[in-house]
Design a protein around this nucleic acid. Structure first.
Length: 906
RNA sequence: GGGCGCGUAGCUCAGUGGGAGAGCGCUCGCUUCACACGCGAGAGGUCGCAGGUUCGAAACCCGCCGCGCCCACCA
């Protein structure tokens, strides 16, 4: 520990960038006696442009690859979806992360803080299709000289009448890349204006070659270890995008529907296959079911009752006939059937919902599929096995009324048919029920049987729960959402998508001499060839002419789920398998910042992939930010029309002010969008300018030590604030760190600065020496405390008197301040401020100016506080323009103020 | 149906066992030599409701009400 006298030696500790920054954290004096360069009229205008250019030029945020592992703090930055629009939510959450990054950097860490752009996936495809008027057709060969036909912007010709132009997948991907590039530039401009301390030399994209190599390499590894498999199975399917989707991508939406009560006639003559229990003869009990999806009646494969439901004991074991189609279906039991729902009897279709899949699987029911991938009822082979009917002609005729129609059209039609046949009992009852949608889709998801790739997930459930406990969550209660999700998983992760702008599966399949594709014998790409696009690249041992030919090969047509790439952001940013030295330094990462709505997707899948590939957590900490709500407490969204353009926000209020608002939102908490808070932030920034100007302009020489009791008390209180802010940052509570620094700073300006003005302007250097030192120390601390939040104004005021960037200056150290303060009489500052407040009140209530002279002040207080008051008496008399101070010992604090006559002085 | 979070001044929020607070807004006053993007002062609250623990509850426990979010096999 240092003695107070050594403070003066701190004047030479000013360091060039962060060299061994942990060694010392107080840097109060301007370098080598140079006078501070304080502008005549300090302003916030133009600071964003000035300092973001300077930071870029000086490489202030450049990651030092030579730093040892122990000094690296790595951040798994969320790559924003660039084809989406920018909104204030981005400003909000990215600011949170940036304050943490800046704090760690000032703590002497080399911060690995890359930016990524999430440009693959459906949102980009949709924009490209509309923007360029094209459609991707993987069967079209690549055209290297493909030019856009003037379909975009200026031309205008044909944009309304023409069919979309079919282009190859590589050409389509080129168009996606072209369009996302301009989006990415807009994002980068915003981030730079906001002051994110990102190292822009490490930017990646989720469709880039690096991301593709890492994704394909990871997939091939899983495949080789048996962690990935393909299966022909019922899959969640979006009929608009015509692709499989994953459980994690579903959301519920309330939709109006109708409940239909439908009659199934008993099947006479018993079962068609001899094994099943036979009807005992003349039973005539009808089976009534209720359904919201009558259009799936032709896909019905069974009726189910609860095993204990006595109402159906007669029926169970027999068969019923589907109305209209006359297909025999067995009546069975299953414990998942709820007796009090509907009629107690439920129709199982292939497939109406996920429960149907469960029943189908567990009861070994056949598949009778009517829905095509385009969401229309497909042609079905009546009369072939599985499509029998009591009356084939009628079945064909009735089904003909439905075939080719969309689900909704078919539903309307079949209700009419059921009415006509008398199988609809009563009127359909309107109901509102939750329906599962693909989160980006516009029609409910269906379940369709198809061949897809899966990553094994379910069997790792317990390990994943354990990983969740290992991870430090900020705030801690967010872990519950992870646990909920993992415990609720019902199937492995389907990662294949029947789309184009994504990472292709690095696989081909042989075609046998009869022309059949051998899906169970995939040909994996060679590691050295990654990334590959199997739609244009040729597997080892084949040549291009064999594509699609008997004895040749065919490429896997699918791309990976966007989360299959995003789940590897730590590996992509850290260049796993590309730059092992870098990867070892940054992985596992220190921090994953993200919003709470994608815990089940991004956070979960990243934990899973890291667990499968590296057998460890991808990061030590997860900091979960909330959302930005509009003043009505609803989530801000484009569709509600309440989105404020972030760039406009930064221009109007200034980046520091916007950051102040963002940083006031506590971790994990949804926060209302509030321009008022930005005005408050701007005031704080202006205050820092002006307080710095006061403290630094023409400041008399600093002394060796803090000799005045009020100065020592101030530094002691400051030490406590630094300790509090530091503890808060260590707990990832940037909002608390800001709040502590801010409230003390306002107190400092209102009381301390006013109290010491007399000594600060005193011509006698013996009088001004201590306060000069205190002002330097305190200003230096405040400028650094605010640096993570208000990087622009902090850098500005720091530059007036210090070399190097404040953002590479050491974070203030509470212990050093305590040592400098020595045995500080903190109560002296308290009681002096208490009396000053009373004097101000008296002047205010008398309507007099603050400099109005005071003849006499009587202070009643305890002996202890009066003794402390004596220590600050000189400053108090000057600040309050008081002639006489009269202490009276008394238990109760009370102040009498006698103002001088108004006419006399003025 | 299950879970998580929230409910404190008109607004945005801090406060987790012992004086009910901050900022904004509002009212009044002050051209004070860092700052009028300022300074000073003031008004304003049965801390969602009801019980319990405790000498003492805004805080801890139980129940209820309201809001938000997540999850669920929602026929």
């Amino acid at each position: 520990m240092r003695a107070p006298a050594t403070i003066s030696s701190l004047s030479d500790t000013q360091q060039p960038h962060n060299e061994n920054a942990l060694a010392s954290s107080a840097a109060p004096a301007p370098s080598a006696g140079a006078r501070a360069r304080v502008p005549e009229r300090p302003t916030l205008d133009g600071l964003e442009a000035k300092w973001s250019a300077a930071w870029e030029r000086d490489g202030v945020y450049r990651f030092d690859h030579s730093a040892p592992r122990e000094r690296v703090y790595s951040i798994d930055t969320p790559p924003p979806t660039v084809s989406g629009s920018l909104h204030v939510g981005h400003v909000f959450s990215y600011t949170h992360t940036d304050t943490i990054a800046r704090y760690r950097r000032m703590r002497g860490m080399e911060v690995f803080y890359p930016m990524g752009w999430d440009d693959n996936g459906l949102p980009t495809e949709r924009r490209v299709q509309n923007h360029f008027g094209v459609r991707c057709d993987p069967s079209v060969p690549y055209d290297p000289s493909f030019e856009l036909g003037g379909r975009d912007s200026a031309g205008g010709q044909g944009s309304d009448s023409k069919e979309p132009v079919a282009v190859s997948r590589p050409n389509f991907v080129e168009l996606c890349l072209a369009l996302t590039e301009s989006d990415e530039q807009a994002f980068e401009r915003l981030w730079r204006t906001l002051g994110l301390s990102v190292d822009w030399s490490m930017t990646y994209t989720t469709i880039g070659r690096l991301a593709q190599r890492v994704s394909q390499r990871s997939f091939l590894g899983l495949l080789a270890r048996g962690g990935a498999y393909q299966l022909e199975a019922p899959t969640l399917w979006d009929v608009d995008f015509q692709t499989a989707v994953a459980q994690a991508e579903l959301e519920d939406r309330e939709r109006p529907g109708a409940m239909h009560r439908v009659r199934f006639a008993p099947a006479s003559g018993g079962s068609t296959d001899g094994g099943a229990p036979r009807s005992t003869g003349a039973d005539t009990q009808e089976a009534l079911i209720e359904t919201t999806r009558p259009e799936l009646i032709p896909a019905c494969v069974a009726l189910l009752a609860h095993p204990d439901d006595e109402r159906f004991t007669e029926l169970v074991g027999k068969e019923a006939l589907t109305p209209l189609f006359g297909t025999r279906v067995p009546v069975l039991t299953h414990p998942l059937v709820e007796r009090d729902k509907g009629t107690g009897l439920v129709m199982v279709c292939t497939f109406g919902d996920l429960t149907d899949v469960t029943w189908w699987r567990e009861l070994g029911l056949p598949v009778r599929s009517v829905l095509g991938p385009d969401g229309r009822l497909a042609e079905v082979p009546w009369g072939t096995p599985g499509w029998e009917s009591q009356d084939l002609e009628r079945a064909r005729a009735q089904y003909g009324e439905l075939q080719g129609r969309t689900i909704n059209q078919a539903r309307r039609r079949i209700v009419e048919l059921l009415e006509q046949s008398g199988d609809l009992i009563g009127e359909p009852q309107p109901v509102t029920r939750a329906v599962k949608f693909f989160e980006k889709g516009e029609r409910p998801v269906e379940i369709i049987t198809s061949r897809q790739w899966f990553i094994r997930t379910i069997e790792h459930r317990d390990e994943l729960i354990a990983r969740g406990r290992q991870l430090k969550w900020h705030p801690p209660y967010m872990r519950a959402r992870f646990d909920d999700w993992v415990n609720g998983l019902t199937g492995d992760w389907c990662v294949s998508r029947q789309r184009f702008f994504g990472v292709p599966f690095p696989l081909w399949y042989p075609i046998d001499h009869a022309g059949a594709v051998l899906y169970d014998q995939p040909i994996a790409a060679l590691e050295a060839d990654l990334p590959v696009d199997p739609s244009t690249d040729v597997p080892d041992g084949y040549d291009a002419s064999q594509r699609g030919q008997p004895g040749g090969f065919i490429g896997d047509p699918d791309v990976m789920d966007t989360w299959a790439t995003s789940s590897l952001t730590p590996q992509i940013a850290g260049q796993a398998g590309e730059d092992d030295d870098l990867f070892k330094k940054v992985f596992p990462m220190d921090l994953r910042p993200q919003a709470h709505d994608i815990i089940r997707t991004w956070l979960f899948t990243t934990v899973l992939r890291s667990h499968l590939d590296h057998d460890e957590l991808p990061w030590a900490n997860a900091a979960i930010s909330g959302w930005v709500l509009d003043p009505d407490r609803k989530k801000m969204s484009k569709s509600k029309g309440n989105v404020v353009t972030p760039m406009h926000l930064l221009e109007e209020h200034g980046a520091d002010a916007a950051r102040y608002w963002a940083a006031s939102g506590r971790p994990g908490t949804d926060t209302a969008f509030d321009p008022q808070q930005m005005k408050v932030g701007r005031r704080l920034a202006v205050k820092l300018l002006n307080a710095s100007k006061f403290a630094l302009a023409d400041l008399p020489a600093a002394g060796e030590a803090l000799t005045h009791p009020l100065d020592r008390a101030l530094i002691a209180r400051l030490a406590a604030v630094v300790a509090d802010a530091t503890d808060s940052f260590e707990a990832y509570d940037y909002a608390r760190a800001l709040e502590r620094a801010e409230s003390f700073f306002w107190w400092y300006c209102d009381f301390y600065l006013e109290l010491v003005k007399g000594r600060r302007y005193d011509a006698d250097p013996h009088v001004s020496a201590s306060v000069s030192l205190a002002l330097r120390l305190s200003l230096s601390v405040f400028q650094r405390l605010f640096a993570p939040f208000l990087p622009f104004v902090s850098e500005e005021v720091w530059s007036w008197w210090q070399d190097g960037s404040v953002h590479r200056a050491p974070w203030p150290d509470a212990e050093e301040l305590r040592v400098a303060a020595g045995m500080a009489p903190e109560v002296a500052l308290e009681v002096t401020a208490d009396v000053l407040r009373e004097v101000r009140k008296a002047k205010s209530q008398a309507g007099r100016p603050m400099r109005a002279p005071v003849r006499r002040v009587v202070v009643r207080d305890t002996a202890e506080r009066l003794a402390a008051l004596a220590l600050g008496e000189g400053d108090l008399l000057a600040a309050g323009t008081i002639e006489h101070l009269e202490p009276v010992e008394d238990g109760e604090f009370a102040v009498e103020v006698e103002l001088a006559e108004e006419s006399a002085g003025d």
